[in-house]
Every structure is written in C-alpha cells, then in structure tokens.
Write a protein that binds this DNA or RNA. Structure first.
Lengths: 300, 300
DNA sequence: AAAAGCGGTGCAATTTTTGCACCACACATT
DNA sequence: AATGTGTGGTGCAAAAATTGCACCGCTTTT
C-alpha cells in the first residue's frame, strides 16, 4: 500500500530504536530513511521522534502518531475486507487471543464451523493471559479476545460475558464420579493437580479454599498447561480442575467431569471482547457474532 | 500531506465525474492522473470506478472508499489538532451548521467567548436546515450541527437536547405586550408574520393552530429570513414568532418578546449533535463542551 | 459520416528518491 | 585525555518513479 509506506518506515524506526538499524531492517540506506522521516515530520508540522545520542525515541506527539498509524492500518484492512465481502468472496483474517481453556475443543470447533461456510477466511489463535490479551487488542495484534476475568477493562469492550462453574476432571473409575455434583472439601481431600496461581481457575479455587478447613490447595502437581492436567488425571487417579468450555463432557477422552457446587466456589466469568471503539473487519465481526451465539448456548 | 495525495486525486475525479476534467482541475495531465487511479486500484485490489462512455462513476466499493477517505482526512486533522494542543498552542478550526435562529445572538456570543481564550481557533458558521445539516456532518463538511428537530437521526449523534418554547415578538407598544404569557388564539387574531412552512417554529404553530377556531395561520407576510421577521415587527405593529435563543429578550433591539403558553403550542427541541461515532478534533470538541454548558443554562 | 469526448498506452523528458561518501556530535572505552 | 564507535544529518551523482506528449480505440453526439 503506497500511501501507508511512510507509516511502515516509521513503525520500523520505532521498533529498531534508531534510524540506521531500521534502515538495515527495511533494506534501504540510512540516509534515505532519515530523509523520509524528516520530510514526514516537516509535512506533519511536528517532530515525532526525540533525537538521542544513541538513536531516536517517540515523543508524546509520536505516541499519538503511532496510535493513529495502527488505526489507519486497521481501517484500511477493514475496508478491503468489506469490499471483498460485497464482491461476493468472503475472505479475510481473524486473529484471536484467548485463554488456554478455549484451545482444545471450543475454538477448533467454532473455527471449523465458520470455515465450512467461508473457506477464504484464515485464523490466528494464540493463548494469552488476561493482561496480554488486552494489550494485544490495543496494539491491533489481535482482533478478538476471549479470556476469563480480564483485569483492566479500559481498552477492552465486552461483547458478551458468560459464567462458567469450575468442573472437576477425573477418570471414570474415581469414587468421586458417583456424585452428580462435588463439594470442594471432598476434592481437596484427594490428590489434585492445579493450574499455576495466575490462572482464573486457580484464583477462584484459592479464594474458596480459604473458607474450608483445608485453608489452601495442596496440589501434587502444578502446571501452566491445561493440556498436561487433562492428560495427567488419566494416567494417575488424581483430579484436576477446569472450566467446562475447556473439557469434553462426554467422557470420550478418558476422563469425565463433574461440576463443583456453586455453594463452595464461585463460577468464572468468560468474556468475549474487542478493542473499545474499534470497528472490526467483516470476517472478525461475523466470527464474533457466531462466537457470541455459541457462547450463549454454552451458558450455565 | 503526501500520503493523502492519491485520496485527493480520487476525490477530484469523483467531483469532476471524469478523469480528464479532474486532471484539468488539478493541473496535471489526464494520462498521469489516469495512471495514478489505475495504480491505486491495482494496489487496493479492487476497482473503485465504473468506466462509462462519458466518464467514470464510483461503484459500490468506491462509495466505501470515499467514506474511508473522508474518515482518514478527518482523523489526520484531529491528530494534528491534538498534537498542536499538547504542544501548548490551541489552534484549529470549527465548522458549524446551524439553524438560522442561532445566528444573530447565540453563536456570535459563544464564538467570541471561546476565541477570547483561544485566538488561534477559527470558525465557519452556516445556516442549514435539519436535513442539510445532517448531510454536512456525514460528509465531514461540518463538525457540529445545532438544529431544531432534525429528521433522520441515523448519522446524527445527539450530544445535548434542550426545549425552547415559542416566543412572540412585537413592538413594546403592542397591546399584547401587557400579558406575561400569550395565548395562541390571541396571536392568530392579530396581523402576524410567519416563517416559511419548512421551519420548526412554523411546523409547531401549524399543528397547534389546527386545535384553535382559526384552524390555520393567516400570515400577512411569510419569509425564510428570521432576520427579516425580527425587523418587520419593529416597522409595522405586527407580531412574529421565534425561539428565545434567536431573540434578545431585553428589548434593546426595538422589539420585546413574550412566551406562548405551553398549553397551546409544544416547545421546540434544539439539538446539538455531531457525526455518529466520530471523534472530533480538539477545538471542535472543546467548543461542543462550551456550547453544551451554555445551552443548559439557556434551558427552559 | 464526422466530430467530440472518454479512458488507456508507448516513449522520452522531468522530477523525485536513493545510495554513497562524508560531517559533526555524543558517549563509551581505553 | 585520547580514541573509537555509533548516531543523525547533508552534498552530489546515480537510479527510479512520475509526468507530459502524442497517440489509439471506443462510444456518443452532432
């Protein structure tokens, strides 16, 4: 895109921290790049960069400019996506930052469903914690975020929020499997695997455990990988915890799941969101609609 | 602005309706302009113009592009305005489309007040009816609109709405001047000057007159100029009608004003608005704040 | 049938951009 | 204190992109 070329160079300079390094990255001469930057600042009417002995850095005006650049890029790709859409061909790209829990079952299913109708649309899916997800939205690195209990909601516009009670995973031969619903005290009494403390499930469990005689969890294993935990309970007769959206509830994968009583543990809030005030390109917007519908069907 | 150059040419072609004419307007060769357009369409990936025997016309994709171009322009000037603002110098431009009633007293006063603090800010003020005003907003020709009872509110984002009862203007020696509040039937019984049927005041009066024995107004003069009406009642002992925001209520200009009873005639709604979803540059945004405050003080 | 107006194109002139060599400066290292 | 390294900036010639000119083919108007 010709008219965004200067923006591309500016972004490169920001990344590299110096004009010379950026010039190398972009395969042009430092002098050429330097002149582009200077010319741009001239035409804009204000300096964008602070000149330091070791390179350049954005000044406050530059920060605004950077945000503007990202917006322009996003607007332009949305325009292309809209035009592509009205010429009949649904194409585009959807970039998702989500909680790990969505990776094994929910998102693969949803994406496959969407692509069945619109094979021209491609996806990027990455696991991110709640802070990272929000940052990705505000840098336009992700179109959509799907996370549990996001922290700062300043740039995060909530499209839909659903609650998810915590489920307990175990092998079918586990004695606890006989109950339709489990009490937290019974779970803490048996060997359990828990997610690392930063995860939403763990936060809810920790806070609930304080109200029991156990006072806290005593996991035989801790992991950042929900995948690991799901598989572990199949190998040893332990239990673990997960939101139902991250589980297969039919027992087809070697484990079964039972809900924890809502008397003991608060449910988690799963939030579907996008960057506040941003209008998404066609493909992400439609996918958000589909997700929104699917999540409401999931609701407990 | 270099990166908006192609956009400028595209807009010129849209205006001119043909590449050759646009080329003349822009003082370049038709061939050069033609190649710019073709190159742009190539890079964009879609044609923007329909090629007709008599010239070119926007296709649907082009309509989206035009909207995009206007948005980009607006965003860029807002960015410049923001940067100028943070470097201390408040400068910029505010373009206002408003009802005629705001022209004699309210806006001159407000603008003078604003410019007393920020002499670097310039203004454009034009009288527009409610339909025109909304159109001006959506083409980014005006930043702010201030009109009575706008029709379609699709692109019109209401910032503030206040009601204005209709006032009756007359010379101080008019017998009606003895009443603190006037009844419509008394006004229709004496010679009156009325605004043309498209104006908000007239619509309210027409609809209220149907409920009286007179059934309708019988103006001795009709005009599209509120200025004319204000002056007419000074020359002949007739009455006329206007919203109080368009009047000097101190009798300093040769006429006095009395409110029509709200029992007889509904008050008009004065709406302050901007283009839906648009973030205004600094100067217009601040001026909207000031207007908003001033209007609330005006409220009846 | 002719004329006028349109978008598109090959080619040379012109303008713009780039690369190279170099400068002045600030900081880090010796 | 001297030197070295990395930075942004600049003059000048080479390279690249843009433009202007002269056309073409086409459709509508006269």
């Amino acid at each position: 895109m010709r008219h965004l070329q200067d923006f591309t160079y500016i972004e490169a300079v920001i990344r590299a921290g110096s004009i010379r390094k950026a010039a190398e990255d972009m395969n042009i001469t430092a002098s050429a790049l330097n002149r582009r930057i200077n010319r741009f600042e001239d035409e804009f009417g204000f300096e964008i960069f602070e000149r330091l002995p070791r390179g350049v850095r954005l000044n406050p005006a530059g920060e605004l400019m950077l945000h503007h650049i990202r917006n322009q890029r996003s607007d332009f790709t949305r325009l292309q996506s809209q035009v592509a859409d009205l010429s009949g061909v649904r194409r585009g790209h959807v970039s998702i930052a989500c909680s790990q829990a969505l990776l094994p079952y929910f998102l693969p299913d949803q994406i496959a469903q969407y692509r069945a109708d619109h094979a021209g649309v491609t996806f990027t899916v990455n696991a991110r914690d709640r802070l990272e997800a929000e940052k990705e939205l505000s840098t336009f690195s992700s179109d959509i975020a799907l996370v549990f209990e996001p922290r700062h909601l300043v740039d995060f516009e909530v499209v839909l929020s659903i609650t998810q009670p915590i489920y307990v995973m175990m092998r079918a031969d586990n004695p606890l499997a006989n109950h339709r619903e489990l009490r937290l005290r019974d779970c803490l009494a048996v060997p359990h695997v828990a997610p690392s403390p930063q995860f939403g499930v763990r936060v809810l469990l920790d806070s609930a455990a304080k109200k029991t005689n156990f006072q806290q969890l005593s996991p035989i294993a801790e992991s950042e990988s929900f995948d690991f935990m799901r598989h572990y309970v199949v190998h040893e007769s332990a239990i673990s915890f997960q939101f139902p959206i991250g589980l297969n509830l039919n027992g087809e994968h070697g484990y079964i799941a039972r809900p924890l009583s809502l008397q003991d543990v608060e449910p988690g809030n799963l939030l579907l969101g996008q960057l506040r005030g941003r209008s998404l390109p066609v493909a992400p917007a439609r996918f958000v609609q589909q997700l929104s519908q699917a999540l409401q069907d999931q609701a407990f």
